[in-house]
Structure formats: C-alpha cells, structure tokens
Amino acid sequence: MLSIKDLHVSAEDKPILKGLNLSVNAGEVHAIMGPNGSGKSTMASFLAGREGYHLLRGKVQFKGKDLLSLAPEERAGEGLFLAFQYPVEIPGLGSLQFLKTALQEIRKYRAQEKLKTTEFMKIVHQHAETMGIAMEMLTRPLNEGFSGGEKKRHEIFQMAVLSPSLSILDETDSGLDIDALRTVAKGVNALRAKKNAMILITHYQRLLDYIVPDKVHILFEGQIIKSGSKLLAQELEKKGYEELIASYQKKLSDTSA
C-alpha cells in the first residue's frame, strides 16, 4: 500500500530525513518509535503534504500512485489520513460542518454522490458513541477550548468518520489518561481490517499493549536503524535507546572501516 524508498527531506536547509525506507502492506499495523527530534513528525507531515519541506531524493508510492505529486487534499481523497500530534484550533468553525465538508469533498474527489444529511448524522452518531464523544462537543468550534485529550480523541473520531485506508497517528497516545487510551485503541482497532493499514508513531509501549503491531521500527536521525516484531518495543522499553543506537553506530563504523 505504501512504499517509501530512500527518502531524503530537508527543512530550512537542514536535512531531517536521510534515506528512509519503509514498506507497509494492506492489513498491517506498523509502529514507529524513536528519540525526540529523530524525524517522526516530519515523516508524517511530509507524507500528508505539508508545505515547507524540500525533497532531496527518493520516491513514495501510495496504492500504486506517486504520492508526492498529489496535493494534500488529493492524498486524503486517495485514503490517507494523518492524526496530528498538535491538532489545530479553527475559531468559529463548527466540528460538524467541518466533518461534513471533509466527507463531501472526499466523495467528490472519488466521484461519489453527495451524502444526505441524515446519512451523515447516522455515521456521526455511530462513531461518536464508540469514541465517547458527547454531541455537545460536536456543536463547539473545532478544537477550540478542547483539552489535550479531547483533541486527540476528536482526531480518532474524525478518522473513524472518514474511514481512510492508511492512517498515520502521530503520538495520538501522548497526554491521554488510561480510559482515553483504551477508547482511542478501540477506535483504531475498529478500523483495523484486511484492506486498511496503519502507522502508529509513539514513545510508549503502553499503546502497543492495546493495539498490537505487526512490525516495530526505530527511527534515528532520519533513518530506520532497526526493525523487528512487537518484541522490539518491549526490549526498547527495558533498555532505552542508548544501547540500540550504540550498536547501530558500531555497525556503521565497522562497515566504513
């Protein structure tokens, strides 16, 4: 579904991604872990099409299409979804109006018919209930005055309503209390299906107890330095990054020697 090959990306002349390779198949859940500043959010935002990055080298294919040639809204139309590490507040914009517009625009992109308001509301009610989102919250302007946890929960609610085929969750678990974490995991697991894939960016093993990943990758200085099964996350939780990074650097100097 997603294939990233030798991706080099810079921002303001600073190289951030330095030869990233990643391949995600339909039905898989991948976790990406890595120290602060290693480039996780950059990868996520770049894939979603945020401005301000410069592609130096590399290719990204999404469902057989050249992802990087598409506008951000076209990427969403193709089925890509990014749950933001820091969701944006938009003063005055009602959550429901926002979601309805998003859904209609995606349907328009896919040459599908417009959704009737009653059908839209049915979808909203269904997912709001699963995600424990009160209808009162949906009448408020988007993310305005939402608590940190509410914003994250709202991101997953949006994901559920838009039903994307590839979701990238950037630290959706950070700042969540244990109940909210369970709710978010429930939302993610509900979307988990043969035809869908997910990339979870996280710092904590905790989330992976609820959403068991097929693969775990460690990102360091813009490269994936180690990949493994869910056991890798557990190992990391015990030992920290230091040992992993040291052995990676040793390997590097060995090969260059």
């Binding site: 979603a48 099409g49 945020r50 401005e51 506008a71 951000p72 809204e73 990427r75 969403a76 139309g77 979804f81 990014l82 933001f84 969701p87 944006v88 938009i90 926002f98 517009t101 998003a102 859904l103 625009e105 995606i106 992109y109 949006q158 838009l162």
Partner: peptide, 9 residues
C-alpha cells in the same frame, strides 16, 4: 493545511 489534510480542497 489541517483542512486540506482532511480532503478539503
């Protein structure tokens, strides 16, 4: 960007 990332042109 937030709106565009949700599919809104």
């Amino acid at each position: 960007f937030y709106l565009q990332a949700r599919g809104i042109s």
